[in-house]
Design a protein around this nucleic acid. Structure first.
Lengths: 254, 254
DNA sequence: TCTTGACCCTTCCCTTACGTCAGACCTTAA
DNA sequence: TTAAGGTCTGACGTAAGGGAAGGGTCAAGA
């Protein structure tokens, strides 16, 4: 059972390249058990186990330097390292999500044409600034609520929400064009759709709903990225409809 | 309105470092409009617009070399570049998701203690192998179904699902200990919980449910990472309960 | 006029995790 | 004996800048 391997076989079995083995050797991360008379590296089963660990730690994103620490010193706090690494990955994922969202926006604007080619990037920049506007959002949301929001507000959900708002805007414009009454049946249905879309954002948390209304009222200080995708007329109609739908609840129209 | 900026003001306004400006200058990505007699870089509003574009494209993950192409040649296909970039980001996100899942597993095993410190990494490796087992999953799932699954199966959902299974296992063990009947009321409720957890995975797609059953039957070929977190006794009890709950539907127990 | 502090310049080395040569050495089969 | 295939070390390249060395510029205060 105590096999020995030459570099080629060893590397293939572990799914790494020979060059990587050289690299780990030079870093002192994985020294081969021995050498042949000609100087060829010779690896053992124990080396293989260690390489497996290295590969695993690399997969979850640890840098080689830290892997060496973790494998070298038994006293290193593994749980703390894992937790920290998970947090790092979570941050990276957040960035990726925002980048994907930005691309989708840009694609949409490019596809709708008409504008000069570089218009999309204004939008992208707005999204970035929204990211740096975290402190602004903290005026209204607690850290915990923001964390929940980030969890729920995946790019897919965002995309769906955006589609929903666009469709709602279109239908509302039609309703206005046909002279519909905000308090009538059509308005009632549109208001219900608006409510569901808001619920996608708040996740049904009443605290967040309140905050959303305060935030909505703070119109003067909105970052540009919060600009609604529909006109003031549509906004007014929907607000009136929403108030008609729920006579007793404040709706957040000015 | 035609402002000029020295590096400090310019960099701050755009949210980059002076060192980055030097870098872009050297790459020919953003040459300042002019220089003072002393050799200081002088930037204009047009430079600012260009820098905004650079920052935006960098945010969505384009390398500087490609950014230069995109900004230099008007004929470059922007839509194609955006689509491709989105795909690249999607792949990265997939990797991140799997890494986070691996960390969560490792953390759980470390926390439960008892095992030698390096046991967790066996589990991590299994997750990696599951990744390379894509071809195996394709036996049962179409590409489209897999894509849907990846969308829905975020780390958060995974974590929640895992918690759900663990709780279900615990409660089922208790039920077995008290001699409950799989076909009785307790069994009925446990079976319903099992069904809901499966639904988290299938998303209610009946095609995927069928596949899940086929996959379940292919027990001999399961990758190790699919090992259930509960004992065979719990498994049998839940299967019998599920069959009792839905007399006419096949449940997938052997 | 001299100095201080805040800017700015260029050039060079450093970072990660290897990939890619280049030139030389080893082993084995034909 | 030679050809093929495997291996060695060493050096350089990658992306996107960070940091430091060593030096110039500018405005204001002593």
């Amino acid at each position: 059972m105590n096999h020995t391997y030459l570099p080629n076989e060893f590397a293939k079995r572990a799914g790494v390249t020979i060059r990587a083995l050289h690299h780990y050797d030079r870093l002192g991360l994985l020294k081969p058990s021995g050498r042949t008379a000609a100087g060829y590296r010779v690896y053992s089963d124990r080396d293989f186990a260690r390489l497996e660990q290295i590969v695993a730690l690399k997969f979850i994103g640890f840098p080689l330097s830290q892997i060496r620490e973790l494998l070298h010193r038994k006293d290193t706090d593994l749980t703390a390292a894992l937790r920290q690494q998970r947090e790092i990955l979570a941050e990276k994922r957040e960035h990726l999500d925002r980048a994907m969202q930005a691309i989708e926006r840009a694609e949409k604007i490019v596809a709708s044409g008409g504008k000069p080619d570089w218009e999309p990037f204004r939008k992208v920049i707005e999204v970035i600034q929204m990211q740096t506007r975290k402190d602004w959002m903290k005026k209204y949301y607690t850290e915990e609520q923001l964390a929940n929001l980030r969890k729920r507000w995946s790019p897919e959900v965002q995309a769906e929400s955006q589609r929903g708002w666009e469709a709602l805007a279109k239908d509302t414009e039609e309703a206005i064009a046909t002279g519909a009454d905000p308090a009538g049946e059509v308005g009632r249905q549109l208001a219900a759709r608006r409510k569901r879309l808001l619920a996608m954002f708040t996740g049904g948390d009443p605290g967040m709903e309140q905050n959303l209304q305060k935030l909505y009222a703070d119109k003067a200080n909105w970052p540009a990225s919060f600009k609604k995708p529909y006109s003031d007329a549509v906004d007014r109609f929907l607000c009136q409809a929403a108030e008609a739908l729920a006579k007793n609840e404040p709706v957040g129209c000015e």
